[in-house]
């Protein structure tokens, strides 16, 4: 453990969604990690990537032995992931509010290429405070980026919360939305595989302290 309780809580909040994504939803494997038609998963909430690394190791993207000395000088694994160093990581993240705008561009790029690939991006509810996310929420709907799914881990970290709930913020811009229990694997799977003809936001609630 890192001794950084906030990052450990961030990892604990995302572990179930990450596992269901990589185990049952994403069309990507270590062998297809460079395939232009792969599904792309962007971890925008780069804080607390221990869960992400664990899933990538379990699925064979990275060597499990690299987990032991993470954050050391020679390790490719840091407190925030670096796509240049981590096989399977689609973006480098850590500074909040970057992943969703990048995901909009990635999804548009897939559409331009005629790819069947989809883009999934995971953001935190606290991260949604960043204004760049609200630019991207609006743009994705206006540009009808239907192959984009944003997963919001709602562990009640936003300083002032969201009036009417997070899903409402996306819905008013024209996104399809769903709210689920972020610990319920079946619910996560059902939500992440639901058909949608516009950008889609899945709010995965995690009870504080759970």
């Amino acid at each position: 453990m890192t001794g950084d309780e906030k990052h450990e809580w961030a990892a604990a909040s995302t572990i179930d969604v990450l596992w269901v994504l990589y185990d049952k939803v994403l069309n990507v494997t270590p062998a297809t990690a460079d395939d232009p038609d792969r599904d792309r998963f962007l971890l925008s909430k780069g804080h607390g990537p221990m869960a992400y690394y664990a899933v990538l190791a379990e699925k064979g993207f990275i060597d499990e032995s690299t987990l032991d000395d993470w954050t050391s000088w020679d390790s490719p694994l840091g407190q925030h992931p670096d796509r240049v160093l981590v096989r399977g990581a689609e973006i480098s993240s850590g500074s909040l509010g970057h992943g969703l705008p990048i995901a909009v561009g990635t999804a548009i790029g897939q559409r331009i290429a005629g790819s069947r690939g989809r883009t999934f991006v995971l953001v935190g509810d606290g991260e949604l405070d960043e204004g760049s996310n609200h630019e991207a929420i609006a743009v994705a709907a206006r540009l009808k980026v239907a192959n984009l799914t944003a997963i919001v881990i709602d562990n009640q970290s936003a300083m002032y919360g969201w009036p009417g709930g997070i899903a409402r913020r996306f819905a008013v811009e024209g996104w399809q939305t769903a709210e689920i229990d972020g610990r319920d694997h079946e619910a996560v799977f059902t939500a992440l595989t639901a058909p949608h003809d516009r950008p889609y936001a899945v709010v995965a609630k995690i009870e504080k302290g759970n």
Binding site: I102, G105, A136, V139
Partner: peptide, 24 residues
């Protein structure tokens, strides 16, 4: 379709450009 205007949203303009570059 390769001409994308994001409105007056410069942070997203650069983020979208990044995503397009990541997509080739």
């Amino acid at each position: 379709e390769r001409v994308v205007d994001v409105g007056i949203r410069e942070q997203t303009m650069v983020g979208v450009a990044s995503g397009l570059a990541l997509a080739g």
